[in-house]
Nucleic acid binder design. Structure first.
Lengths: 225, 225
DNA sequence: CCAAAAGTGTTCCGTCTACACCCATGG
DNA sequence: CCATGGGTGTAGACGGAACACTTTTGG
């Protein structure tokens, strides 16, 4: 039976994590300098090889957890990248995953330890291999999904102001949104709850803090911005 | 340098083709009985292993061409499937691809020779391994994309009637569309050209035949049904 | 002459968009 | 007291959905 498999050759399979964050009203990407050959010193996504005892998804979660210490992150497969010479060393097929994390949850000591940086998405340098393509695909997926799935909350703290939320949408969609229209729409969404708490950090008057109610969303998972 | 790779293990990678067709106003899927172990005799998508000298996309095109003889088909990656035990024999990661073909272009002798059949999508049996999941994902991708990309033409002959076109949309989206609203929208789309030809096969009165003008679409690739 | 599919417009309603001013507060 | 960001409503435009009858012709 294994004869059937043996006729064919195996390849290395890796996962690469496209980690988005949100800071100073800008989308950021977590990238670092490659510390191994081939491509040593080039900017690169953070990745790792898939092991025998883990699924692709598990591999992606492991790689992200290794890097950030974060466990329950939003993660979605972007796609498999398999050009013959995409890796300059050997034939490696890579499966890209897109993660959305709250920058504040990421211990900055750990970040420095791994030598990765938050880079502004619109100042993204040339990356190793086909990583720029992966990022492009991730962004276009993100832009499409943000309209029908409550993704933005993954980029924010548990409590956030409506202005922050609006800035996330603007950063992802790439242009401005009318404040009144935005807030009108948000008000109609049950699972975005206003709390009694006030955030005084960003303004003198203070802004109401909101919260994403996961349970309410699970009850009625319809979303349309 | 290769030391770096050697620390990790390789896996088999295959591609599986989800081939959609359209016949008798229904979406059909091309599936066959597996002729090898493991899973001999089970219904299955048609697939093959990725070779050293071809990219993932090339592998998918090769597998589809082997099966159907068709070269310039619409094809899109659906995603990578990598559960540890998804293949009952060995660890195999599979990348699923979705193809849309015109049933009439597929030589029926060839089809029989390969022992594959067109099966109504809503009568789809239990398939081998995780192939049902692949199909589900392909359909949901298709439903989303059909609204913003001119995909339906791939399932039809070069010349088609508006009624046929409408049936394709109904089959994919899964419910009825108002004829007048549909035709109103189609009329606004420049790259769907009315020809002087009349199709008399489906009605006594005859229906105008239309054509998808690829060049016009390439000039202005905006589409919204 | 009739069955069967092709073809054709209008009205209504809900949704999206544009738009400008007052409020509260810390410094 | 003023600079700064927070918060609010309305009117007009637009697009999508509902809806029924006439035309053509092969048998």
């Amino acid at each position: 039976m294994t004869q059937y498999y043996r006729e064919h050759s195996k390849v290395w399979v890796s996962v690469d994590c496209i980690v988005f964050g949100f800071e100073n009203n800008h989308l950021k990407l977590l990238i670092g300098r490659r510390q191994m050959d081939p491509g040593r010193g080039e900017w690169s996504l953070y990745g790792g090889f898939v092991r025998d005892d883990e699924s692709l998804d598990d591999a992606a979660y492991r790689v992200l957890r290794d890097l950030t210490g974060l466990k329950k992150t939003y993660m979605k497969q972007v796609g498999a990248f398999g050009a013959i010479d995409r890796d300059p060393g050997e034939r490696v097929i890579s499966v890209a995953y897109c993660a959305l994390i709250n920058v504040a949850d990421y211990d900055d000591k750990l970040r420095q330890q791994y030598g990765v940086e938050w880079v502004d998405l619109d100042k993204l340098p040339k990356l190793y291999s086909d990583h720029n393509q992966m990022v492009s695909k991730a962004i276009s997926l993100l832009r499409r999904r943000i309209k029908t799935e409550p993704l933005s909350f993954n980029l924010l703290p548990d409590l956030f102001t409506l202005t922050q939320l609006q800035h996330v949408y603007e950063a992802i969609l790439g242009d401005g949104i009318d404040k009144r229209n935005f807030r009108k729409r948000i008000k109609q969404i049950d699972f975005i709850e206003k709390t009694e708490l006030i955030d005084k950090k960003t303004s003198k008057r203070g802004a109401a803090l909101y919260r994403f109610n996961k349970k309410l969303y699970a009850d009625d998972p319809t979303f349309k911005l």
